[in-house]
């Protein structure tokens, strides 16, 4: 690894993970530190007990009421979030091969499966984020948007674009990525020879760099809704 790769795809990864975790904890601490108003803000009809729990999960993950007012937005937002989780799960394969699946499909089959599923997810994510970007440029969305909104969307877009590039044009075997991830996990970041010598290396470094930036900014941006949404959607059914 040259020093720049070491910095961006090595050191910065650790910084990002720590910033993300500490930032998340900090945000939660900061929220809980502020006293709650005693006024209950729930709207009706209200549910209680188990039904309230189900309602809460539904409001948080599905927000079905949005279907009434903005269907395309609902669709792309849902796709973006499901895609995000799927991509995260897919990356776990770089830590540990999904052995049962790999055994069932065989080595070739697994590669094929990963190419197709990962490819679809990558495209869906890219399309969704492009939709969000295009929407921002239209009035009235533009009038209410701040540079933060564009900045975040561009970060996500870059991560996805480069990720897709690795997926579709990368010349490197999955084993090489796995070796890199393992080197990260053992705190000795290193690119295996195959990766270090290929042109793909720079795409990977940029992909990782943008991901790091996103991760660092996440808890401090409006994307803090990844933790905030649970609290606010619970307030929706808060009874007196």
């Amino acid at each position: 690894m040259n020093w720049l790769s070491f910095l961006l795809a090595g050191v910065l990864v650790y910084v990002a993970v720590v910033a993300f975790l500490v930032g998340t904890a900090f945000r939660i601490y900061y929220w809980l530190k502020v006293p709650r108003s005693g006024i209950k803000l729930g709207i009706f009809p209200q549910t209680h007990g188990r039904r309230r729990f189900v309602q809460w999960i539904k409001d948080t993950f599905l927000f079905p009421q949005v279907l009434d007012v903005d269907r395309p937005m609902w669709l792309f937002v849902i796709l973006l979030h499901i895609g995000g989780v799927a991509a995260f799960v897919g990356h776990l394969r770089l830590i540990q091969e999904f052995t049962p699946l790999a055994n069932a499909l065989g080595k070739e089959g697994m590669e094929q499966f990963s190419l197709i599923s990962g490819g679809i997810v990558g495209i869906v994510l890219l399309v969704s984020v492009l939709y969000l970007i295009a929407r921002r440029f239209k009035s009235p969305y533009r009038d209410i948007s701040t540079p933060e909104d564009y900045f975040l969307l561009i970060l996500v877009f870059m991560v996805l674009l480069l990720g897709n590039h690795l997926r579709f044009f990368g010349q490197v075997d999955v084993e090489a990525y796995r070796a890199y991830v393992h080197s990260l996990l053992t705190f000795s970041p290193e690119f295996p020879a195959e990766l270090a010598e290929s042109g793909t290396r720079w795409v990977l470094v940029t992909h990782v760099t943008f991901s790091n930036l996103l991760l660092i900014y996440l808890p401090f941006s409006k994307l803090v809704h990844y933790i905030g949404t649970y609290a606010v959607n619970l307030m929706r059914s808060e009874a007196r």
Partner: peptide, 18 residues
């Protein structure tokens, strides 16, 4: 006038304009 509900609302809105 800061309270927890208010802080959540200030922090969480994504300006999606739904």
């Amino acid at each position: 006038g800061m309270n927890r509900q208010l802080l959540y609302y200030l922090d969480v809105c994504t300006r999606c304009s739904i």
